[in-house]
Protein backbone atom coordinates (compact mmCIF):
# COMPACT_ATOMS: atom_id res chain seq x y z
CA UNK A 1 0.00 0.00 0.00
CA UNK A 2 1.14 3.51 -0.83
CA UNK A 3 0.44 6.24 1.69
CA UNK A 4 -0.08 9.79 0.53
CA UNK A 5 0.66 12.59 3.01
CA UNK A 6 -0.31 16.17 2.18
CA UNK A 7 1.89 18.69 4.00
CA UNK A 8 1.51 22.45 4.19
CA UNK A 9 4.06 25.21 4.59
CA UNK A 10 2.73 27.62 7.20
CA UNK A 11 3.97 30.34 9.49
CA UNK A 12 5.90 28.74 12.37
CA UNK A 13 3.58 28.03 15.30
CA UNK A 14 5.73 30.04 17.71
CA UNK A 15 5.57 33.24 15.68
CA UNK A 16 3.23 35.95 16.89
CA UNK A 17 1.57 37.02 13.65
CA UNK A 18 1.14 40.65 12.65
CA UNK A 19 -1.81 41.96 10.70
CA UNK A 20 -0.77 44.36 7.92
CA UNK A 21 -1.73 47.95 8.57
CA UNK A 22 -3.74 48.17 5.34
CA UNK A 23 -5.91 45.20 6.37
CA UNK A 24 -4.90 43.18 3.33
CA UNK A 25 -3.71 40.22 5.32
CA UNK A 26 -1.11 38.89 7.70
CA UNK A 27 2.50 39.95 7.22
CA UNK A 28 4.34 36.90 5.89
CA UNK A 29 7.46 38.72 4.65
CA UNK A 30 10.62 37.61 6.47
CA UNK A 31 8.67 35.41 8.86
CA UNK A 32 9.86 31.94 9.79
CA UNK A 33 7.85 29.27 7.98
CA UNK A 34 7.68 25.56 8.91
CA UNK A 35 5.71 22.43 8.27
CA UNK A 36 2.21 22.60 9.77
CA UNK A 37 2.52 20.77 13.15
CA UNK A 38 -0.37 18.41 12.43
CA UNK A 39 1.23 17.41 9.12
CA UNK A 40 4.43 16.41 10.93
CA UNK A 41 2.30 14.00 12.93
CA UNK A 42 0.79 12.64 9.69
CA UNK A 43 4.24 12.15 8.15
CA UNK A 44 5.44 10.43 11.32
CA UNK A 45 2.46 8.06 11.27
CA UNK A 46 3.03 7.20 7.60
CA UNK A 47 6.68 6.39 8.30
CA UNK A 48 5.69 4.23 11.27
CA UNK A 49 3.30 2.30 9.01
CA UNK A 50 6.17 1.71 6.61
CA UNK A 51 8.44 0.60 9.44
CA UNK A 52 5.71 -1.81 10.58
CA UNK A 53 5.55 -3.31 7.09
CA UNK A 54 2.03 -1.99 6.45
CA UNK A 55 3.03 0.54 3.80
CA UNK A 56 5.48 0.16 0.93
CA UNK A 57 5.89 3.77 -0.07
CA UNK A 58 5.24 7.16 1.52
CA UNK A 59 4.61 10.05 -0.85
CA UNK A 60 4.55 13.60 0.49
CA UNK A 61 2.62 16.25 -1.43
CA UNK A 62 2.58 20.00 -0.98
CA UNK A 63 0.55 22.58 -2.83
CA UNK A 64 1.30 26.28 -2.89
CA UNK A 65 4.34 28.36 -3.74
CA UNK A 66 7.72 27.09 -4.95
CA UNK A 67 9.23 27.48 -1.46
CA UNK A 68 7.01 24.62 -0.28
CA UNK A 69 9.78 22.37 -1.59
CA UNK A 70 11.58 23.06 1.71
CA UNK A 71 8.62 21.59 3.56
CA UNK A 72 8.71 18.55 1.29
CA UNK A 73 12.46 18.15 1.91
CA UNK A 74 11.67 18.05 5.63
CA UNK A 75 9.15 15.26 5.01
CA UNK A 76 11.74 13.40 2.92
CA UNK A 77 14.33 13.84 5.65
CA UNK A 78 11.89 12.38 8.18
CA UNK A 79 11.55 9.31 5.97
CA UNK A 80 9.09 9.91 3.13
CA UNK A 81 10.23 8.18 -0.08
CA UNK A 82 9.42 10.82 -2.66
CA UNK A 83 7.59 14.08 -3.04
CA UNK A 84 5.26 15.93 -5.37
CA UNK A 85 5.24 19.72 -5.38
CA UNK A 86 2.22 21.37 -7.00
CA UNK A 87 2.80 25.03 -7.68
CA UNK A 88 -0.56 26.76 -7.52
CA UNK A 89 0.46 30.27 -6.57
CA UNK A 90 3.26 32.72 -7.22
CA UNK A 91 2.59 34.71 -4.09
CA UNK A 92 3.02 33.51 -0.49
CA UNK A 93 0.06 35.65 0.50
CA UNK A 94 -2.34 33.58 -1.60
CA UNK A 95 -3.69 30.71 0.46
CA UNK A 96 -5.17 28.00 -1.78
CA UNK A 97 -8.56 27.03 -0.37
CA UNK A 98 -9.24 23.54 1.00
CA UNK A 99 -11.70 22.79 -1.83
CA UNK A 100 -9.06 23.45 -4.52
CA UNK A 101 -6.43 21.56 -2.52
CA UNK A 102 -8.82 18.60 -2.19
CA UNK A 103 -9.43 18.61 -5.96
CA UNK A 104 -5.69 18.60 -6.71
CA UNK A 105 -5.16 15.82 -4.17
CA UNK A 106 -7.97 13.85 -5.81
CA UNK A 107 -6.21 14.10 -9.17
CA UNK A 108 -2.97 12.90 -7.57
CA UNK A 109 -4.79 9.99 -5.92
CA UNK A 110 -6.27 9.01 -9.28
CA UNK A 111 -2.71 8.81 -10.65
CA UNK A 112 -0.88 7.33 -7.67
CA UNK A 113 -3.63 5.09 -6.29
CA UNK A 114 -2.60 5.16 -2.61
CA UNK A 115 -4.44 2.94 -0.14
CA UNK A 116 -4.46 5.60 2.55
CA UNK A 117 -4.19 9.36 2.89
CA UNK A 118 -2.90 10.74 6.19
CA UNK A 119 -3.50 14.47 6.61
CA UNK A 120 -3.29 16.90 9.49
CA UNK A 121 -6.63 17.78 11.11
CA UNK A 122 -6.18 21.48 10.41
CA UNK A 123 -3.60 23.98 9.22
CA UNK A 124 -2.63 26.49 11.90
CA UNK A 125 -2.84 29.42 9.47
CA UNK A 126 -6.37 29.28 8.05
CA UNK A 127 -7.68 27.04 10.88
CA UNK A 128 -10.22 25.57 8.44
CA UNK A 129 -10.20 21.89 9.45
CA UNK A 130 -11.74 20.87 6.13
CA UNK A 131 -9.34 19.52 3.51
CA UNK A 132 -9.36 15.87 4.63
CA UNK A 133 -13.14 15.72 4.85
CA UNK A 134 -13.50 17.42 1.46
CA UNK A 135 -11.05 15.02 -0.16
CA UNK A 136 -12.88 12.08 1.35
CA UNK A 137 -16.15 13.39 -0.12
CA UNK A 138 -14.64 13.88 -3.58
CA UNK A 139 -13.16 10.36 -3.53
CA UNK A 140 -16.30 8.78 -2.09
CA UNK A 141 -14.05 7.19 0.54
CA UNK A 142 -14.51 6.76 4.27
CA UNK A 143 -13.08 9.35 6.64
CA UNK A 144 -11.57 9.11 10.10
CA UNK A 145 -11.05 12.60 11.44
CA UNK A 146 -9.14 13.83 14.55
CA UNK A 147 -7.43 10.46 14.97
CA UNK A 148 -5.52 9.82 18.17
CA UNK A 149 -4.95 6.15 17.42
CA UNK A 150 -4.92 4.19 14.16
CA UNK A 151 -4.81 0.45 13.63
CA UNK A 152 -4.90 -0.80 10.04
CA UNK A 153 -5.94 -4.38 9.46
CA UNK A 154 -6.30 -5.40 5.81
CA UNK A 155 -9.42 -3.90 4.24
CA UNK A 156 -10.41 -1.81 7.26
CA UNK A 157 -8.93 0.35 9.98
CA UNK A 158 -9.86 1.10 13.56
CA UNK A 159 -9.63 4.81 14.23
CA UNK A 160 -9.98 6.35 17.68
CA UNK A 161 -11.18 9.93 17.31
CA UNK A 162 -10.93 12.85 19.72
CA UNK A 163 -14.51 14.11 19.96
CA UNK A 164 -16.14 16.67 22.24
CA UNK A 165 -17.19 14.32 25.04
CA UNK A 166 -14.16 12.02 25.00
CA UNK A 167 -13.01 9.37 22.54
CA UNK A 168 -14.92 7.55 19.81
CA UNK A 169 -13.66 4.49 17.98
CA UNK A 170 -14.94 3.77 14.49
CA UNK A 171 -14.12 1.12 11.91
CA UNK A 172 -13.56 2.54 8.44
CA UNK A 173 -13.37 0.74 5.12
CA UNK A 174 -10.05 1.13 3.29
CA UNK A 175 -9.03 3.06 1.28
CA UNK A 176 -9.63 5.92 3.68
CA UNK A 177 -8.73 9.49 4.47
CA UNK A 178 -7.50 9.85 8.04
CA UNK A 179 -6.85 13.25 9.60
CA UNK A 180 -4.56 13.21 12.59
CA UNK A 181 -4.81 14.92 15.95
CA UNK A 182 -2.00 16.05 18.24
CA UNK A 183 -2.02 12.95 20.38
CA UNK A 184 -1.51 10.37 17.62
CA UNK A 185 2.27 10.35 18.01
CA UNK A 186 5.38 12.39 18.64
CA UNK A 187 7.08 13.27 15.36
CA UNK A 188 10.78 12.45 15.03
CA UNK A 189 13.48 14.95 14.23
CA UNK A 190 15.31 14.57 10.95
CA UNK A 191 18.99 13.71 11.51
CA UNK A 192 21.71 15.53 9.61
CA UNK A 193 22.63 12.48 7.45
CA UNK A 194 18.93 12.05 6.61
CA UNK A 195 18.64 15.73 5.69
CA UNK A 196 21.59 15.23 3.31
CA UNK A 197 20.07 12.06 1.84
CA UNK A 198 16.72 13.82 1.38
CA UNK A 199 18.34 16.17 -1.11
CA UNK A 200 18.81 13.24 -3.49
CA UNK A 201 15.25 11.92 -3.21
CA UNK A 202 12.83 12.38 -6.10
CA UNK A 203 10.66 15.51 -6.13
CA UNK A 204 8.33 15.99 -9.07
CA UNK A 205 7.24 19.52 -9.81
CA UNK A 206 3.75 20.09 -11.21
CA UNK A 207 1.27 22.91 -11.50
CA UNK A 208 -2.43 23.11 -10.65
CA UNK A 209 -3.10 23.38 -14.38
CA UNK A 210 -1.42 19.99 -14.94
CA UNK A 211 -4.30 18.52 -12.96
CA UNK A 212 -6.90 20.76 -14.60
CA UNK A 213 -7.91 22.33 -11.29
CA UNK A 214 -9.09 25.93 -11.05
CA UNK A 215 -7.68 27.44 -7.84
CA UNK A 216 -9.73 30.65 -7.95
CA UNK A 217 -10.94 31.32 -4.41
CA UNK A 218 -14.64 30.85 -3.63
CA UNK A 219 -14.25 33.06 -0.58
CA UNK A 220 -13.09 36.57 -1.38
CA UNK A 221 -11.12 38.09 1.46
CA UNK A 222 -12.66 41.49 2.14
CA UNK A 223 -10.33 42.42 4.95
CA UNK A 224 -8.14 41.18 7.75
CA UNK A 225 -8.18 42.94 11.10
CA UNK A 226 -6.43 42.75 14.44
CA UNK A 227 -8.67 41.26 17.09
CA UNK A 228 -9.67 43.68 19.82
CA UNK A 229 -6.90 44.05 22.33
CA UNK A 230 -7.77 43.55 25.96
CA UNK A 231 -7.29 46.49 28.23
CA UNK A 232 -4.35 46.21 30.57
CA UNK A 233 -4.97 44.23 33.71
CA UNK A 234 -3.51 44.59 37.15
CA UNK A 235 -1.31 42.47 39.35
CA UNK A 236 -2.81 41.90 42.78
CA UNK A 237 -0.70 41.33 45.87
CA UNK A 238 -2.59 38.57 47.66
CA UNK A 239 -5.42 36.05 47.45
CA UNK A 240 -7.53 38.37 49.64
CA UNK A 241 -7.05 41.23 47.21
CA UNK A 242 -7.91 38.93 44.30
CA UNK A 243 -11.14 37.80 46.00
CA UNK A 244 -12.03 41.42 46.77
CA UNK A 245 -11.44 42.47 43.14
CA UNK A 246 -13.53 39.58 41.82
CA UNK A 247 -16.36 40.42 44.21
CA UNK A 248 -16.18 44.06 43.17
CA UNK A 249 -16.39 43.03 39.51
CA UNK A 250 -19.35 40.77 40.30
CA UNK A 251 -17.50 37.72 39.01
CA UNK A 252 -17.97 35.60 42.15
Amino acid sequence: MKVLVPVKRVIDYNVKVRVKADGSGVDLANVKMSMNPFDEIAVEQAIRLKEAGKAEEVIAVSIGVKQAQETLRTALAMGADRAILVIASEDVNTDIEPLAVAKILKAIIDEEKPGLVLAGKQAIDNDMNATGQMLSALMGWSQGTFASSLDIDGDHALVTREVDGGLQTIKVTMPSIITVDLRLNEPRYASLPNIMKAKKKQMDEKTAADYGVDVTPRLQVIGTAEPETRKAGEIVGSVDELVAKLKEAGAV
Binding site: I11, K16, V17, V19, V26, I124, D125, N126, D127, R218, L219, Q220, V221, I222, G223, T224, A225, E226, P227
Partner: peptide
Protein backbone atom coordinates in the same frame (compact mmCIF):
# COMPACT_ATOMS: atom_id res chain seq x y z
CA UNK B 1 -16.02 37.03 9.85
CA UNK B 2 -13.80 34.26 11.15
CA UNK B 3 -10.65 34.08 13.25
CA UNK B 4 -7.46 32.80 11.59
CA UNK B 5 -3.92 32.19 12.86
CA UNK B 6 -5.07 30.96 16.28
CA UNK B 7 -7.33 33.96 16.69
CA UNK B 8 -4.56 36.49 16.08
CA UNK B 9 -6.37 37.93 13.06
CA UNK B 10 -9.99 38.27 12.04
CA UNK B 11 -10.72 37.70 8.40
CA UNK B 12 -13.88 38.88 6.66
CA UNK B 13 -14.78 36.72 3.68
CA UNK B 14 -17.49 37.01 1.04
CA UNK B 15 -18.68 33.76 -0.46
CA UNK B 16 -19.41 33.62 -4.17
CA UNK B 17 -20.80 30.09 -3.88
Amino acid sequence: ERPIYAGNALQTVKSID
